[in-house]
Amino acid sequence: MGEDTFWTWFKREFPSSKFGLPNRMSSDDILLQYSTLGFPNLPGKSIALLWELYPEMKEVFKKDIWDQKIERIFQCSKYCTYRTVSSPLAARYYQEFGHVDVLPIGVDTELFKPKRDKELLRKKYGLPLDKEIGFWGGTTHPMKGYDRVLEYAKNHPDIYWIIVWKWDLESDNFSGGHNFIKVNQETLSELMNCANFILFTGLLRSYFMLEWEAMACDLPVRLYDSSLERDFIPSNSPREDVFRQKWDRINTKALWTQYLENKGITW
């Protein structure tokens, strides 16, 4: 979708890094292996990037449809030299394979930030100027909690909604507001700044990237389920929370730099 992801950001910030498997690795090299790729089929140091939430999804939904992916994730965790997760709440799924480190993925706080003229942005996107507007983004996948959005909207009929769907295949025609599908990051940031709050409805404990982006925009957070364990509960200043948790890209780079140096990696 053209996002500036962790991968494109990492390639810029660590310019000697390369995509894909090299022909061979030296003692100064390290492989960053995405978890669903499974066994790191290359001798040398490797870091398992255990960011996918399938083990928790299996635990929450009691289904076996993700078992093949989970098996590959566990192979990655077992056979990589090091293991990293983006949330301490995910560490317990991999501790049987060795020590697990917690490192942020990072959110672009220069792109996702508060914008002053909410009225102008609402006019740009054809949104009402005189209504409270809620924001929600995701898919109809059960882990996102779209059914909770429908329930919340039914119980709060005066709220107008901005609904951003990640892609067509897992979208719905939400009738209580304005639907957007597959928008770029600049548009996403502007739509967040049109709203008065974001509703967190996910059934999993770790925050999704979109939720980090909304917090970086300083968008007030409403938790549908306040009893669900979280890394932290957003404050009245969610943008400050992002920096406090060191999820901005400056802190993310510093933490990754220190981590790689501790593993004997240079660039």
Rank of each mutant, 00 (worst) to 15 (best):
E3I: 09
D4T: 12
T8Q: 04
W9S: 06
F14P: 00
S16G: 08
R24Y: 07
I30C: 11
L31A: 12
L42D: 05
P43G: 10
G44Q: 05
L53T: 15
Y54G: 02
Y54A: 01
P55H: 08
E56C: 09
M57D: 07
Q68L: 04
I73K: 07
S77L: 07
S77I: 08
S77C: 08
R83K: 10
Y93V: 11
E96N: 13
E96L: 13
E96T: 13
E96Y: 12
T109F: 00
F112E: 12
K123G: 05
Y125T: 12
G126M: 05
L127M: 00
L127W: 01
K131F: 00
E132I: 12
T139H: 08
H141N: 15
K144W: 05
K154W: 13
D158H: 11
Y160Q: 10
I162Y: 10
W167P: 04
F180R: 11
V183S: 09
V183F: 06
E190P: 03
L191F: 14
N196A: 07
G202L: 02
Y207C: 14
F208I: 06
A216H: 10
C217M: 02
V221R: 06
Y224I: 00
D225F: 00
D225H: 03
S227P: 09
P234H: 04
N236D: 14
P238E: 11
F243P: 06
R244V: 06
Q245T: 05
K253I: 03
E261S: 11
N262K: 13
